[in-house]
Nucleic acid binder design. Structure first.
Lengths: 360, 360
DNA sequence: AGCAAAATTTGAATCGATCCAACAAAGATG
DNA sequence: CATCTTTGTTGGATCGATTCAAATTTTGCT
C-alpha cells in the first residue's frame, strides 16, 4: 500500500536502481563498495533510489562470483552436524577455530552428512575458501572427496601417512609414552589398552597383525608409545590386552567386559581418548571397582570435561584450541604449501591414577 | 611434468574442458549435473578431459548465482563465534537446528561479530538462504541489520513486541508462574529475583519504572509471571528485590551480594536462566548457605547441565531442541509469512528446591 | 577564454556455471 | 518415402555483481 512497487515478484538488482537513479551500473556499484569516490550529490540520489525501491544491498551471490573469495572456512566431518556441539573434543577444537575466524572476520560453515552420497555433494557444493577436516571415522574418504575440490584443506590429527595432505596433530608416540610411563612409575605392571579404531568398522581385541596394518596411524602411534614405555619397565607387551573400541559407550563397555573377564585383570587402563576413559571410570564405579584404589585410568586428549569428572581424570592433554587456531590460520593464510605440524602434549596428573593395590 | 598444463595460474573452468572435449558448454554442464541425458560416449569423453585437465568439478560459486539458493542457513549472534560451542543453551539449540538441517542436507553458516561494523558486514555478506537470530544482547540491532537483507529470518525467543518479525519462543509468563508457584506451594514467602537484562548494558536493582519500559519483553514477561503467582499467594511483590544481571558471573554475584546484604534475606531465589541459577548455587555453597536447606533456587531454560549440577537444578524447561528444529524448518520451508510460535514449558522439579527452613 | 590536470562516470568485459528453445540426427510408423 | 517421435546437442541468455580502461566533466590556473 505504501510504496507502489508492492507485490513485485523479482528482487531488485543493482541494475534496477542504477536505471532508476539515471546512472551506470559502475557508478551504482561504487556507491555501495567505494562510496568515497562518487560525488555526493550522485551518491545521495542512488541511495535514495535504493531506499525507495527497497533494495537489499549488493547481493553477495553476485559479488562472490566476481571476487572469488568467500571469506568462510568449512569444517567437515562424517558425523552428523550435531557432533560439533555435543562432542567435548570437537567443541574445544571449534573454540580455537572460532577464535582465529573471529580475529579475521571469517565465517564458519559446518559441513557434514551421514551418507556417502550426501557427503560428497555437501563437500562439492560448500561455499568456502578451504576446509578443516575432522577425520574421525571414514576420514580417508573425506580427504579424498575434499581433495577433489582443489581447495586448501587441513586434516586434524595426522591420521594419515600421506605426506601430500596438510595436517596438524600431536606427537602421539610421545604422549602415549608419557601416559604409560606415569602408570609404570606408580608401580603398575598389569595393563590393558582401550584403543581408538585401527580401521573402520571393527572392534574387539586386536592382533599385532592388525596393528601393523592400521589405517589410522594416530591409533597405531599411541599404541607404539604405550608399548615402548611398558617394555622399558620390563613389562611383556605381548600379554597386554588391546581392545579396539569405536570411541563410544557400547564398544568401550564391551571392551571392559572382555578385559575384566580375565583371571588376572589389569591394575591400570590406558585409554586412547578421554571419552573412553570417562566411560571406563563410570563402568568401573558401577562394578564397585575403586578408581584409582583398585584400578587406575589414564586418558588422552585433555578435554575440559576431564577436569570435572569424578574422579578428575589423569590424561595426556593436547593443545586442542591451539590446534584449532593453527588449522584455521593455515586455511586463512594459505600459501600453497603442504604443511604438517606436530604439537607437543603434556601429562596432566589428576586423581584417576595412583599406586596399584597392595594385594595385587 | 606429467601433464603439459603444469604451472597454470588460472583454475580450469567448465568452458575449458568443453572446448577440450569438443562439445558445447551446455553439454559439458549436463555431464556433471544430469549425466543421464548425455550419450555415454560423449559423457566419457568429457569426463576424461576433465580428469586430464584436473578440473575440480562445477564451481559452486557459479552454480549459486544461477540457482539462487545457497542451501545453507545462517545462525547469527552478537556474541563471539565461540558462544555457539560454549554456552549450554546455545548448544542445545544448535543441536535442534542441526537435526533439521541434517534431515534436509542443508548447511549451517555461523555468523557473528564483536563490533557493530563487522557485524553489519558479516550479515550483509553471509551466503545463506535465511537467518536464525540469537537475540541476546543487542538483539534489536541484529534484527534491524538482518531485516535489510530481505531474507527470511526468525528470532529466537520472542524478545520483541514487533509483530512484523517472525519469532519462536516459549510462554514466558506461564513458565515463570510455574516456577514461582512451585516455590510458594513449598511454603516460601520471601523471594528474590535474579533477572535477565531488561535493556542493554544496565545491571542492578530494577524499579517498576524500568520493568514497564523493558526493551526485552521476554524478561518482562517472566517477571510478570513470577509476580502473578506470588501475589496469588498473598506476597507483596513490591517488597521483592529484582536484580538485573547480564547473565554472567560477575553481575549475578553482585546481585547476590546485594540481595543477601538485606536484613531479611530471601528463602527462595527465582533465576531467569539456568546459567544464573547455577552461578547462584555455587555462590551460596561458597558462603555455606545450604541449597535447598536454607535457600531454594529455581532456574529457567532446562539446559542439559542443569540436570547434572550439584544439587540438580529445579527449573522451567523449554523445549530447546524443538525450538531449534522449528526455527530451522521455518527458514528451510519459508512461505513468505510472518510466523510467531509460542511453545509450552514444563516445570522440572529436582533437588535445588525444597521447603523453607523452619527458623525463618 | 584556453588548457592541462584532477575528479567522475561510463559501458563493456568478466566471474562460472545453468537453463532452455531451437535444431539435428536417428529411429519408428504408415 | 514422407512424417512423426525420440534422443542428444547447441549456443545464446541469464544470474548479480565488480572492475578498469576510456570518455567525460570539473576544477585550477594563467
Amino acid at each position: 500500500m505504501a510504496s507502489s512497487t508492492e507485490g513485485n515478484t523479482r528482487p531488485i538488482r543493482l541494475a534496477d536502481i542504477a536505471k532508476a537513479a539515471g546512472v551506470s551500473h559502475g557508478t551504482a556499484s561504487n556507491v555501495f563498495s567505494r562510496p568515497e569516490i562518487v560525488r555526493e550529490e550522485v551518491r545521495e540520489r542512488v541511495k535514495a533510489a535504493a531506499e525507495a525501491m527497497g533494495y537489499a544491498g549488493p547481493d553477495p551471490k553476485g559479488r562472490l562470483l566476481r571476487a572469488g573469495k568467500v571469506n568462510a572456512i568449512g569444517v567437515a566431518t562424517t558425523e552428523p552436524l550435531s557432533y560439533f556441539f555435543d562432542d567435548p573434543f570437537a567443541r574445544a577444537m571449534m573454540a580455537g577455530i572460532s577464535q582465529a575466524c573471529d580475529a579475521t572476520g571469517a565465517g564458519i560453515a559446518l559441513v557434514s552428512a551421514g551418507n556417502e552420497e550426501k557427503l560428497a555433494w555437501n563437500i562439492q557444493s560448500a561455499l568456502v575458501d578451504g576446509f578443516i577436516l575432522f577425520c574421525i571415522e571414514g576420514g580417508s574418504r573425506l580427504v579424498e572427496l575434499t581433495r577433489e575440490r582443489k581447495l586448501p584443506f587441513v586434516a586434524l590429527e595426522l591420521g594419515f601417512d600421506d605426506d601430500t595432505v596438510s595436517a596438524i596433530g600431536v606427537d602421539n608416540v610421545a604422549g602415549a609414552r608419557l601416559a604409560a610411563q606415569h602408570l609404570a612409575e606408580l608401580g603398575h605392571r598389569r595393563f590393558a589398552v582401550l584403543a581408538l579404531p585401527f580401521a573402520d568398522g571393527s572392534t574387539g581385541l586386536v592382533s599385532p597383525e592388525k596393528v601393523r596394518t592400521a589405517l589410522y596411524t594416530g591409533t597405531r602411534d599411541r599404541l607404539v608409545g604405550y608399548f615402548e614405555a611398558f617394555s622399558r619397565y620390563g613389562v611383556d607387551t605381548a600379554g597386554i590386552p588391546v581392545y579396539e573400541t569405536e570411541n563410544d559407550e557400547a564398544s568401550t563397555r564391551a571392551g571392559l567386559e572382555t578385559i575384566f573377564a580375565s583371571a588376572e585383570p589389569p591394575t591400570a587402563i590406558v585409554a586412547m581418548s578421554d571419552r573412553i576413559a570417562m566411560i571406563a571410570i563410570e563402568w568401573l564405579a558401577a562394578r564397585g571397582i575403586a578408581v584409582p584404589g583398585d584400578v587406575s585410568v589414564v586418558g588422552f586428549d585433555g578435554v575440559p570435561d576431564a577436569a570435572i569428572c569424578d574422579p578428575p581424570l589423569t590424561t595426556v592433554a593436547q593443545p586442542i584450541a591451539e590446534i584449532g587456531r593453527r588449522a584455521a590460520r593455515s586455511i586463512l593464510d594459505f600459501d600453497g604449501t603442504v604443511r604438517r605440524e606436530t604439537l607437543g602434549v603434556e601429562l596432566v596428573v589428576r586423581a584417576s591414577s595412583g599406586s596399584p593395590p597392595k594385594t595385587a
